[in-house]
Design a protein around this nucleic acid. Structure first.
Length: 281
DNA sequence: TGTCACTACACTTTGGCTTC
DNA sequence: GAAGCCAAAGTGTAGTGACA
């Protein structure tokens, strides 16, 4: 099934049933949060430098802008439910539910093994969301939101033991504080924005903003901004009618050299090679 | 149009320190 | 503990040219 990363602003949730290729694809990422549930088969799931074996029943937690990719075992291809959603969908009700998606420490384990109670419960909830999305019965959006919040609550309870209450509260507080800056970046990535602009939106110094950003997001401002721009460029490259020049200019890159370097560094392919890769899929 | 290479310079990042 | 200030180091970008 084709993966489309555009979420409906009206109801920002999307679910797909996906079979990863047996060939290792380039890393991808998105602004939305994501929960994956392996229905069957085997394979591997990669997050930057982390690698997890995949079995039926496993649950995977993907934070926003977290680079990830999956590969199927050729003999036993894996099949997943993936639900993507915007933070606004559940954050407006209870910000604490977002914390498992914001944990960026190297010790964080993205996988919840299939036999664990949290994975079993989340698997049931994912089936429920899928059925609601297929049936589209009256008030299905409320039902889906409820199921998603239950799934996030299971994640919160599962991961609660990984952090002390103080660390948990600090993580949440930092995200709340940084939230206007993240909104600003996502609204203005195509402009020539700088750290000082983000600092201004938070009424903090650039130095303090840098430290806050790094602590909360696990990476620097520039890296985060470049990832968003490359992500948008990838979407543009999927359209053969757009020239590469138009694409990089519309994504906020000031010149072709900067674009090519950033794209190759993050995706591992040149823009042209990536376009060919997408067209042959 | 796409890619690569180079330089100068602006900007970001980092760490230490101070203040509140 | 949170936040700001500062300076040095590191990094990225703009601009340009060459080549396929």
């Amino acid at each position: 099934m084709k993966r489309d990363y555009q979420l409906n602003k009206d109801f920002p949730i999307q679910m797909t049933c996906w079979v990863p290729s047996s060939k290792l694809a380039p890393f991808h990422w998105h602004h939305s949060f994501e929960i994956g549930y392996c229905l069957e088969g085997e394979g591997q799931f990669y997050f930057e430098d982390k690698r997890y074996d995949v079995r039926a029943g496993d649950v995977f937690v993907v934070g926003n802008m977290e680079k990830h990719r999956a590969v199927s075992d050729p003999a036993r291809p894996s099949r997943f439910y993936f639900v993507k959603f915007d933070a606004s969908l559940i954050g407006s009700a209870d910000n604490e539910l977002l914390v498992p998606f914001l944990m960026k420490t190297p010790q964080f384990v993205n996988k919840i093994g299939g036999g664990l109670p949290a994975a079993i419960a989340i698997g049931r909830l994912m089936h429920g969301i899928w059925e609601e999305l297929q049936a589209e019965e009256r008030a299905h959006r409320s039902m889906i939101k409820g199921l998603l919040m239950q799934a996030c609550t299971r994640l919160v309870r599962h991961y609660a033991t990984a952090l002390s209450p103080e660390e948990w509260a600090r993580s949440l507080q930092a995200y709340k504080k940084l939230s206007p800056a993240l909104d600003c970046i996502h609204a203005r990535y195509h402009e020539h924005i700088q750290l000082k602009d983000i600092a201004a939106s938070l009424s903090l110094s650039t130095s303090r903003t840098y430290h806050l950003f790094k602590e909360t997001m696990g990476e620097g401002f520039k890296d985060y901004l470049t990832k968003i721009r490359v992500h948008e460029a990838k979407k543009g490259l999927a359209d053969p009618n757009l020239s590469i020049t138009d694409i990089y200019l519309s994504c906020g890159f000031q010149g072709h050299a900067a674009f090519y370097r950033a794209f190759q560094q993050i995706v591992g392919l040149t823009p042209k090679a990536y376009r060919q890769y997408v067209m042959t899929k």
